Computed example of a mutant assay.
Amino acid sequence: MERLTAKRDEGGYEVDAGLIECGEGTCRGRAIDRLAAYEDMQEMLEAQYEKTAERLEVLKAQGKLKTAQAQQLLAQKLTYSNMLGLIGVHSD
């Protein structure tokens, strides 16, 4: 992966000004596109995590936590949780 940001010694990150263009109160460019893709991925992971957790709760209420479907959903929930944990936005 080609990194677009650089860590600053005093904390935080910065991006080369050539990777963004700003005007009229907004900015766009390659760095912004990469950030948007990351945010899209994070939103999708969070939505999938919640959807999976809700489906597990339904099965739990029905007393079906030992079914193959419940086990698959549990594995998916753990996978989503781990992915969110790796990107630093979730802990379970």
Rank of each mutant, 00 (worst) to 15 (best):
8 R>K: 14
47 A>V: 05
34 R>M: 09
34 R>A: 15
48 Q>A: 10
70 A>C: 05
84 L>A: 00
41 M>F: 10
81 S>P: 00
26 T>H: 09
49 Y>C: 02
89 V>E: 04
22 C>Y: 06
57 E>W: 04
43 E>C: 04
66 K>D: 14
59 L>N: 03
26 T>R: 13
6 A>I: 07
22 C>M: 07
72 Q>T: 11
53 A>C: 03
26 T>P: 00
58 V>I: 13
71 Q>K: 14
76 Q>P: 01
81 S>W: 06
81 S>G: 13
74 L>Y: 08
81 S>H: 04
64 K>R: 15
28 R>G: 13
80 Y>M: 02
56 L>S: 01
1 M>N: 07
78 L>D: 12
42 Q>K: 15
52 T>R: 14
84 L>G: 01
65 L>Q: 14
19 L>F: 09
63 G>I: 01
58 V>Q: 06
68 A>H: 05
78 L>R: 15
54 E>H: 13
85 G>M: 07
46 E>D: 07
91 S>R: 10
91 S>F: 04
30 R>M: 06
41 M>W: 11
7 K>S: 09
66 K>V: 09
43 E>F: 10
18 G>L: 08
30 R>G: 00
4 L>V: 06
8 R>H: 06
24 E>Q: 11
15 V>M: 06
57 E>P: 00
80 Y>T: 00
6 A>Y: 04
58 V>K: 10
68 A>W: 03
63 G>H: 04
67 T>V: 12
35 L>K: 12
21 E>L: 04
30 R>D: 09
72 Q>F: 08
26 T>I: 02
46 E>C: 02
51 K>W: 08
45 L>G: 01
90 H>F: 12
8 R>E: 09
32 I>F: 06
59 L>F: 05
77 K>M: 13
43 E>M: 11
57 E>G: 07
30 R>N: 02
50 E>L: 13
36 A>L: 08
4 L>P: 03
44 M>N: 13
54 E>V: 04
49 Y>N: 05
39 E>P: 03
70 A>K: 02
14 E>N: 01
2 E>D: 09
13 Y>W: 15
78 L>S: 10
48 Q>K: 15
12 G>I: 08
31 A>V: 11
26 T>K: 12
71 Q>T: 13
68 A>K: 13
37 A>P: 00
37 A>R: 15
48 Q>N: 14
37 A>K: 15
55 R>E: 09
85 G>Y: 06
13 Y>K: 04
91 S>M: 02
11 G>K: 05
89 V>N: 00
52 T>C: 12
70 A>D: 05
56 L>H: 03
13 Y>P: 00
40 D>R: 15
17 A>P: 10
43 E>W: 10
69 Q>D: 14
55 R>I: 00
83 M>Q: 10
85 G>F: 06
60 K>R: 14
75 A>E: 11
77 K>S: 07
3 R>S: 07
29 G>R: 02
48 Q>H: 14
90 H>L: 07
27 C>R: 09
84 L>N: 00
47 A>T: 11
17 A>K: 12
33 D>R: 15
51 K>Y: 10
20 I>V: 15
73 L>Y: 04
48 Q>R: 15
71 Q>N: 06
91 S>I: 02
65 L>K: 08
17 A>Q: 12
